[in-house]
Simulated assay, not measured.
Amino acid sequence: MSTQSPRSAQAAQPAATHAPRVPKDSRRRGRWTLLVIALICAAPIAISYFTYYVIKPKGGTTSYGALIEPQRPVPDALMVTGDDGHDVPLASLKGRWLMVSVDGGACDEACATKLYFMRQVRATQGPERERIVTVWLRTDGASVPEKVKGAYADTRMLRADPVAVAAWLPATETTKDTDHIYMVDPNGNLMMRFPANADPSKIKQDVTKLLKWSSIG
Rank of each mutant, 00 (worst) to 15 (best):
A11L: 01
A11V: 04
A11F: 02
A15P: 01
A16G: 01
R21I: 13
V22H: 00
V22N: 04
D25M: 10
S26A: 15
R28T: 07
R28W: 10
W32K: 05
W32A: 10
T33F: 13
L34A: 14
I37P: 01
L39E: 04
A42Y: 00
A42I: 01
A46S: 05
A46L: 08
S48C: 04
Y49I: 13
F50T: 08
F50W: 14
Y52E: 13
Y53L: 09
V54R: 14
T61G: 15
Y64R: 08
G65A: 07
I68D: 02
P70F: 04
R72S: 06
P73G: 05
P75A: 07
M79A: 11
M79T: 14
G85T: 13
V88L: 15
A91C: 02
L93M: 15
R96Q: 11
R96N: 11
M99C: 00
Y116S: 06
R119D: 12
R122M: 06
A123I: 03
R131L: 07
W136A: 09
G141Q: 04
S143A: 15
V144N: 04
E146I: 00
K147M: 04
V148A: 02
A153K: 10
T155Y: 01
T155I: 14
M157D: 11
A160T: 10
A160P: 00
A160N: 06
D161W: 08
P162L: 08
A164L: 13
V165E: 00
W168D: 00
A171G: 10
T175A: 06
T178I: 14
H180M: 06
I181G: 03
I181K: 02
G188K: 11
R193Y: 10
P195A: 02
A196R: 12
N197G: 11
P200S: 02
K212T: 15
S214F: 02
